Amino acid sequence: MTPHSAVPHLAPESRLSDFFQGLGLLGRAFSLLFRSRRLFLLSALCAAVTAVALVGLAWLLYRHAPGLLAGYWALPESWYGRVGWYTVLVLSALVVWVVGANVVPPLLLAPLQDPLSETTEAVVGGDDGPPFTLAGFVRGIVTGVAHTLARLFFLVLGLAILLPLHLVPGVGSVLWTVLGSLWTMTWMAGEYLAAPMTRHLYSFAEVRRMLRERRALCLGLGAGVYVLLWVPILNAFFLPLAIIAGTLLYRGLRQANLLPPPPDATPVALK
């Protein structure tokens, strides 16, 4: 695969098979990672920080999750009550760990996300984006933080709406885990597609439009990142691979004329 061919060719209309094309973006990203020395070094640095963050999150959950759950629901005396209690503990901890993995490493590695996306576009022959100016740099940071806060709000809101499912005996916690995972996958797609789109000064409304109009494609990307989080060693590379894959998706959307040309350097309002 040549660097230019790493950009996916997308059908003009949405279709169910788009899910597998979105899933395959992680493979394209992994292959592209070795095409550029700078891309590889940036990814290795991200992987080192991410590995420490993921281990730290797992340790915190191991130490404190049982106590937090016990504060709301005391450990039952009966064996079936204990089975239910530990089921809720494990399923909830898994979702919280995934959410934490998509909040803590990106915050720690925020300064490297734009260089990763920019280098990816350079490797595949993409646009360089607007010329560097101090005002544009500051505006980009403000826009990126605003978009990130908006996306985090929607992530937490969706999980909070699903939280009462825990009250349904038996299958409630399973349903919460399944639906919460699907919601998190969708959020991941938005998070990593937004990385290059924010750099090119697209509004958050455009990110939402792509998630809505190419739902299967974006869900495939989110599912790929979600699965990658559970693969030991490789999960340390989930952030750079997700950013590279999101940038390839952005380039594919532009190539298929599904996105309008990037806005100019005028301020972008959060919609």
Rank of each mutant, 00 (worst) to 15 (best):
P3Q: 05
H4N: 10
L10S: 09
E13M: 01
F20H: 07
G22R: 10
R28S: 15
L32G: 12
R38C: 01
L39V: 06
L42F: 13
L42H: 04
L45H: 00
C46Q: 11
A47C: 08
A47M: 08
V49P: 04
T50W: 05
V52D: 02
A53V: 14
A53Q: 07
R63Y: 00
A65G: 06
W73S: 13
S78F: 07
G84T: 04
W85K: 02
V90I: 15
L91C: 09
L94M: 11
V95M: 12
V96W: 04
V98Y: 06
P106K: 02
L107H: 01
P111F: 07
L112R: 05
Q113D: 01
S117V: 04
P130H: 14
F132S: 07
T133D: 09
V138E: 11
F153Y: 13
V156I: 15
L159G: 00
L159S: 02
G170Y: 03
W176K: 14
W176E: 12
T177I: 08
W187R: 09
E191M: 14
E191L: 15
Y192W: 14
Y192A: 09
R199I: 01
Y202C: 05
A205F: 00
V207H: 06
R212W: 09
E213N: 08
E213A: 10
R214H: 13
R214I: 11
A216L: 11
C218W: 00
G220V: 07
G224Y: 02
V225W: 01
Y226V: 02
L228V: 01
I233M: 08
L234Y: 03
F237D: 13
L239F: 10
P240A: 06
L241E: 08
T247F: 04
L248K: 06
L248V: 07
Y250T: 06
N257M: 10
L259T: 05
P260V: 03
P260N: 01
T266R: 15
T266N: 09
T266Y: 00
